[in-house]
Structures are given as C-alpha cells and as structure tokens.
Amino acid sequence: MKKHPLLMVFYFLASFFASVCMANEGKNLSLLTAEPLVNVEIASELLKFENELERKMYYQLIQDLRCPKCQNQNLADSDAPIANDLRNEIYQLVKEGYTSSEVEKYMETRYGQFVRYAPAVSSATAVLWMLPAALIILGLFIILGILKRNRSFANDFGKDFDDGFHDDKNQHTFDRKSAEDVDRRVTELLHSSSEDQQ
C-alpha cells in the first residue's frame, strides 16, 4: 500500500489537535469529569459567595489546583479528605479577598509546585514544558525526512520511465525476444513434425 505523505501530515496534525482538545477537556471538566463535579456542585449549593466573580474564582481554583493525595485529580474531582480541607481553605481565602494568584501561591508554599497543574518553568519542570514542543519538532523532521526519501526514490525510478506507462524498456525487449523465441521454436517443431510424416 502506498503511504501518501500528505495523509501522514494530516494524521500528525489530527493527533496533535486531539491531544490539545483532550488537555482542554480535562481543564473544563466536561464529559470525563462530569460526575464528581455534580457532587461538588451539590455541596457548593451551601457555599455562599458575595458575588459571581468570587464564585467563578473559587471554581477555577479548585479545578486548577491538584489534590496532593489523589494525585492526578484536581481538588474539584477528588473525594479525599485532604481535598475537602483544601477546598474549604480556598473558600475561606477567596472570601477573605485573596486573588487567584495569591491563593495559588499560598497552596504552593505549603504543598509545593506539585499542586499546580501548570507549574513554573524550572530545571525540575523543564522536561514537562519542553518535551511537547521537542516532539512536535522531531515529528516534523521525521515527516520531512520521509517526504525527501520518497521524492528521491521516485526520481531514481523516474530515470527508467519513458512516459506515464510503468513499462520497462528492458523488460519490453526481453518480452519481445522471448516471444520471437517461442515463435521460432513452434515453427521449427511444426516443420520437423511435418518432415517426420513425409
């Protein structure tokens, strides 16, 4: 089967967009995380906020901060007691008028960079930040390599093509030669057999 280079570029871009979409999915708490959010939503009916801004800020924070116990769940998702404590703490801080970045800083000084889903770039998190870009660049180079190889491959063969027909000259002459051979042998046989009869 012939792999079309453009198709590969398409696959590459499609998988890239898919991963970006999935990353956003996690952030926005849609399908995958719908159920836990419902629970939080119910619990938060009891949470009173001064204004809509504070409410939004609270929800953004519990989505962006990570539970130290149930690692890979954010505070909104996690059922761990510590997540509950941290949600309460964030609620209090929001009510006391802390800004988002202040709350994040507050959590970070206690639980470390780990609580942030988007930690600051440092020697420890460099791989986390750089790897996706590095992989994209690597992927582009691989695709370029494949494209280049395919082209030179086609060029090498192209020397032997006279036109659009995939017909090799040598093959052609060989066929003609062998056909003539067969022709000759058949005639000889016919002749010899007729000579025998005589």
Binding site: P68, K69, I82, D85, L86, E89, R110, Y111, G112
Partner: peptide, 12 residues
C-alpha cells in the same frame, strides 16, 4: 481541624 497540618503541607 488540621490547621497546622495544612500549613505544613500534610496530606495524610
């Protein structure tokens, strides 16, 4: 209440 626990970063 886990107050000092929270300031210490205790998670269990």
């Amino acid at each position: 209440e886990g107050i000092l626990g929270l300031h210490l970063g205790v998670y269990g």
